[in-house]
Every structure is written in structure tokens, then in C-alpha cells.
Nucleic acid binder design. Structure first.
Lengths: 71, 71
DNA sequence: GAGAATAGTAAAGGATGCTTGTCATTCTGA
DNA sequence: TCAGAATGACAAGCATCCTTTACTATTCTC
């Protein structure tokens, strides 16, 4: 599942470690999610979306929904 | 994590089996999610939201977001 | 009452998420 | 240039998700 985590993190100049601490997960989990090795659990997806003030749909994108979304 | 799956299903008069087939999961998985024994994976949460034409936030609700949402 | 449909639960096993620990590589700045 | 920060990746182990199979209880319909 595609996600915009790396972009959102970069916009805030956070390291993976910074983000991991804010989400209360390990740095390796952040890295694995960013690099697409696995998807977060639903509770973690909620924490991620809330941290960035976005909806889950804004952060993660199911393949079927990837069409021509602006920017 | 709270969810409105049972209500959404009932609104459509679907059995757990009906819903399970539409989601391509087992009836027991639907039952477990409805009764709160566990949360769906993120990909399954997306399928559920898409099936009902809602956002994930509309179907599932993190504890921190449970305040005074209308109806 | 018999049979079907629905729902709740359990056990066992496979798949996935998350951890700590470790190593290699790349980036950054003094 | 070189040290430290940052990143990517892997392994082992535990937790969680999801499966199949199975059993039970309730309700409904004939």
C-alpha cells in the first residue's frame, strides 16, 4: 500500500527517529512503513494520520484509489 | 477500536456471511471485528470503507476521537 | 418438532506487524 | 577529512490478524 509518510516527514524535517518517537514505535517500524515493506496496523495508521492532521485516506492510498489525484 | 460495522451491515440487511463474501474474508473475521475482538488490517479497513462508500474515519473511531459526533 | 439461517466462540496454524539488536552505507557539518 | 547522524536492511522473537474447522445457541419457517 502506497503512503506519503516520507514526504510528510520531510516537510517537517523530522528524522525517522523523530517520527518514531512521536508515534511511539521503533525507528525500524517507521522505516519499514516508509519503504513499503509492510503496512501499519489500523491503530498505528490512526496515530499517523492524527499526527499529521490528515485523514488515513490522505496518508495511505489503496491501489484501487490511485488514479489522478492532484499533486 | 470502536467501529460501526454492525450498524452499517444491518442497514443493508446483510448477514455476517454476506458481508464476509463481499469483503473476501471469512465470516469469523467479520464477527471478530464486529464484536471488537480485533481490529482489521489497514488493507481490510480500506476495503470495508470502500464497500460502504465511507471513509475509514467514518467506520472506525480511535478512542481519542470519541467525543460528541453527531448521530 | 425438524431443519435452515444466523451469530458467537474456540483451537490451531499461517501470515503480518512490531520489537530489539546489529551491521553497512550514505549524508552532513565542523 | 573525518565523526557522528541518518537511513536501509536483516534476523529472531513475540503479538496480532486472519484462516479453517468445529461446536453451540438462538430464531425463523415449514
Amino acid at each position: 500500500m502506497e503512503n506519503r509518510l516520507r514526504v510528510l516527514r520531510a516537510e517537517r524535517s523530522w528524522s525517522q527517529q523523530d517520527l518514531a518517537e512521536r508515534l511511539e514505535v521503533s525507528r525500524q517500524s517507521v522505516n519499514a512503513i516508509e519503504t513499503g515493506r509492510y503496512d501499519p496496523s489500523l491503530p498505528l495508521a490512526f496515530r499517523i494520520a492524527e499526527l499529521f492532521g490528515l485523514t488515513i485516506e490522505d496518508v495511505f492510498e489503496s491501489p484501487s484509489r490511485r488514479s489522478s489525484k492532484a499533486i
